[in-house]
Design a protein around this nucleic acid. Sequence first.
DNA 1: CCGTATCCATGCCGATACTG
DNA 2: CAGTATCGGCATGGATACGG
Lengths: 125, 125
Amino acid sequence: MTLSITDFPAPTQGDDCRMVREILDLVGDKWTLYIIATLKDGPVRFNELRRRIDGISQRMLTINLRGLERDGLVKRTLFPTIPPRVDYELTEVGRTLLAPVMALVRWASSNLENIRDARVRYDAS
Amino acid sequence: MTLSITDFPAPTQGDDCRMVREILDLVGDKWTLYIIATLKDGPVRFNELRRRIDGISQRMLTINLRGLERDGLVKRTLFPTIPPRVDYELTEVGRTLLAPVMALVRWASSNLENIRDARVRYDAS
DNA sequence: CCGTATCCATGCCGATACTG
DNA sequence: CAGTATCGGCATGGATACGG
């Protein structure tokens, strides 16, 4: 999922789908959702994020944080001490994203078991 | 399973994120959302889907429809005529997915412009 | 009409090594 | 502590050709 909205040519599907796709491009990658969730309670330092998000590499954490900062969803604060310290926290906009994600959480809770069962049935036949 | 995203325990991230990620793996690819949207009003034949979803290849349409069928979100009906005819339609489960997606639509409508502006500002600096 | 099969470009992401 | 740089594997998806 590495698409920009410009990858979608002539509109026949209405604007809704393209907007949602742009949001999915924001949160649909492997790590962004974990980062947002980990920042929900307030500022967290870089290596603390790294520790809390199991399996993420330094490289991917940096890349995703830069993207979120660029989109205005995360605020980066540098304390020019030695050694340096950097805090990351959700912006107001970033926090509002939690609500629609919650809707997906609820849907997932209700339907994930059915989907897994459906897969087993399908693969068996 | 009544988890809320606000219950995320560090350091394992809880189950919510993994569930949402599984849903994002369902709808987060390039075409699935368009397919679901195109099927929202009732059964559509294969080549009609192909025509309505601008830019999709035969290959990707087939692959995504198979995935949705496997997950129990889309029902495939073969009419063994000559030439053959195949109808695709959302299942009951598939239709319920439209609601949480709509929540993302609303968030996108409210915030996409801000995000684009934020990107422009970030890239300028 | 409704697919499958094959080749291949693109780019995400992990691993590793190196700076201020 | 908080990054950056580079390499390479691997999955996604487009183009094309062929089959039932």
